[in-house]
Amino acid sequence: MVNGQVGALGRSAREQQIGMALGIAVLSTLAASRTGNQLAAGASDAAALTSGYRLAFTIAAGLLAVALVVSFTVLRRPGAAADTAPAGEPLALAL
């Protein structure tokens, strides 16, 4: 691997870890807030926790569905650029 590729891989892994940490922090905050509100309203501990986790999992599932739609509609296939090369032009393989 070239040094630039190693650096890019490191940045990608770091960005993924930061994104996951932020996502967990936001979902945990939402779950804790909902749980606290339910407890303040007089719900039992089990019902309040269930409500908080249900909110967090519902939001996570919604974000996952959005990411899935974006990945299928916006991102291109790796071979898509090779399909659109002009006639007579040599195709270059990207490694």
Rank of each mutant, 00 (worst) to 15 (best):
A92I: 13
A41L: 10
A67Q: 06
A80R: 12
Q16S: 15
Q38M: 13
G4M: 14
R14Y: 14
V69D: 01
L63R: 05
G52E: 00
A46G: 12
A85N: 08
V6P: 05
R76N: 09
V66W: 06
S71A: 10
Y53K: 04
P86D: 04
M1I: 10
A65W: 00
S44Y: 00
T50C: 06
V70H: 07
N37P: 02
A67D: 10
A85T: 14
R76C: 06
T50F: 03
A60P: 01
A48L: 01
L55C: 00
T29M: 11
A43N: 02
S28P: 11
Y53S: 06
A65L: 05
G4P: 02
L55T: 01
P90G: 04
A56E: 00
A60F: 03
A8G: 11
A92D: 03
A85E: 02
T50G: 13
E89H: 12
R11S: 15
G42H: 01
L93Q: 06
A46I: 03
V66Q: 04
R54G: 12
P90I: 04
T35Y: 05
G4N: 11
V6R: 12
V66S: 07
V26N: 11
Y53M: 07
I18V: 15
Q5N: 13
M1D: 08
I59C: 02
A60V: 00
P86E: 04
A92P: 08
Y53P: 00
L30D: 04
T50M: 08
V2C: 13
G42D: 00
L22F: 07
S12R: 13
G10C: 12
G42Y: 00
L55G: 00
L22Y: 07
I24F: 08
V2K: 09
L91K: 14
G42N: 02
G10W: 11
G4L: 14
P90E: 02
G52Y: 00
L49Y: 04
F57V: 02
